[in-house]
């Protein structure tokens, strides 16, 4: 598979969130403002790229029978690293993301890519796949975060845009997350149909 394709397909065509419907939990839970969304995206990107790289590296030497436990160990290592690093250097963000940082370990994107891609492809492709998938994930997550923050709090990345009293608070509450992603998906459906 070409390097470009490895990189490209995760962004729109196989966007993990809006197309493949995986890794939804953090997308909905931490997208109530753009900063949280950005933070989560970075954490996921870190874990995804690193674990893809490591899995691709060890793929020749891993016994097939216990590959998945080994993947889990690898992933949980990187998750714990990002957990502690965030806690140490960005404590506010860490507090906001809460339990969702350690939960990256069961995010289907990561294990899914390790199994479906990194385990069968060379290191460079796997890293690019990780980057592409992370970008796709970040794209979905941050756009949802921005939409919810603007509509729900009248600001973006914490910068006030208009009087927050006018903003519809529901958008930063749980129902707002569902509505936003539902409408985004429908829009993507329509957009894709038009393109075709």
């Amino acid at each position: 598979m070409s390097l470009w394709k490895s990189f490209n397909q995760g962004i729109i065509k196989e966007n993990p969130v809006l197309r493949l419907m995986i890794g939804l939990c953090p997308v909905l839970a931490v997208s109530n403002n753009a900063i949280n969304a950005l933070g989560m995206s970075v954490a996921v990107a870190f874990v995804l790229i690193c674990s893809n790289a490591v899995v691709a590296m060890i793929r020749k030497t891993t016994p097939d029978e216990i590959r998945i436990p080994i993947f889990i160990i690898v992933i949980s290592t990187f998750v714990t690293i990002s957990d502690y690093v965030m806690n140490a250097f960005t404590p506010d963000l860490y507090a906001a993301l809460g339990v969702f940082v350690p939960l990256i370990v069961v995010n289907c994107i990561i294990l899914g890519r390790a199994e479906a891609f990194a385990y069968r492809n060379p290191v460079l492709n796997s890293i690019l796949d990780g980057v592409g998938m992370s970008l796709g994930f970040a794209l979905a997550l941050i756009s949802i975060g921005v939409i919810r923050e603007v509509l729900g709090a009248g600001s973006v990345f914490g910068i006030a845009l208009f009087n927050p009293a006018v903003a519809a608070t529901i958008m930063v509450l749980p129902p707002g997350a569902f509505i936003t992603i539902g409408v985004l998906m429908a829009a993507l459906n329509k957009f894709e149909n038009k393109v075709q």
Partner: peptide, 11 residues
Amino acid sequence: VAILPGANCGA
């Protein structure tokens, strides 16, 4: 099962 991603995502 070996071919499938094994993510058990239910999607």
